[in-house]
Computed example of a mutant assay.
Amino acid sequence: MLRRAQHAVLALVMVSTGAVFGVTVTAGTAHAASNCGQPITGLPLQQGSQGTSVERLQIRVAGFVDSGEVLSTDGIYGGRTKEAVRKFQKQYGLQADGIAGSQTVDKIYSLQDSDCTPIHFSYAEWNKCNSNWSGGAVSATAAKANARKSMWKLEALRAKTGGGAIQISSGFRSNSCNAAVGGVQGSRHTYGDAADMPGTQARRCQLHNGAKSSGFREILGQGFPGHNDHTHVGMTGSRQWHGC
């Protein structure tokens, strides 16, 4: 709620500034500030498109997949990317044609903050271990990138499960932080792509089941040893779904 309030205050300041100085604040101007320095260009992007913009798009729609599917973020706009875009568009009331035009990209921009994380999640809540993302199973840069990709999947999960808040009780852990809380050796938390989500049993099971079609391979919840108070999602080589 605090992050939404901050967005609202910023919007009012922008409008007020435009009124006082006679500056017209257009939709394009507002969205330009929301591309977080990683604009999605070359629109429309569609099946056959390739490049960095496709990869940026794929990261943001990777949570809109079939059950058990993990969307590749390879910068190649294939049939699975088209289907993920179509599901994203349908979720947000856009024309569901699987083509990423200006309306689709504008919607993506409206869902992200200036650091490229989705509006309902942050690096700070994902990393309560240390400030520099170091000491895990991968480099600090890789851990932070993994976290951002996972946040976008949770943004999709949040939308698909009614828009209710998702709390993160544990995200990235360095190896030492992981050992301190009794985490298993090689935990996906040390890679930055895992998160634990507490809540009521009903909510945890809702998130557990929704995560199956949100691009996660590792889903551990109610009934799995050590997971009766949270649902854990992460990435791993082979699929592991337990609980609920």
Rank of each mutant, 00 (worst) to 15 (best):
Q185V: 15
N178W: 07
A195T: 01
F172V: 03
M197L: 08
D196P: 08
H208T: 05
R188E: 08
G183D: 12
H208N: 00
A180P: 14
G183F: 11
V184M: 11
T190I: 07
S174P: 11
G192C: 02
G171F: 08
F172D: 07
S176K: 15
T200N: 06
M197I: 12
S187V: 00
A194S: 11
S176D: 15
G171E: 11
Q185Y: 06
G171C: 02
R188P: 03
Q201E: 14
G183R: 09
A180I: 14
G199N: 09
R203K: 09
A202F: 03
D196A: 08
R204W: 09
N175R: 15
A195Y: 12
R203C: 00
N175A: 15
R173Y: 15
Q185G: 07
S174W: 11
C205S: 01
G182S: 13
G186N: 08
Q201R: 13
N178M: 11
D193Q: 03
R188L: 06
Y191A: 05
D196L: 13
Q206R: 09
S176L: 12
T190N: 09
Q185N: 12
A202L: 01
G186P: 02
A179W: 06
D193F: 06
Q201P: 02
N178I: 05
L207M: 02
M197N: 00
H208P: 05
L207D: 03
G182Q: 12
G192M: 03
T190F: 13
A195W: 01
V181F: 14
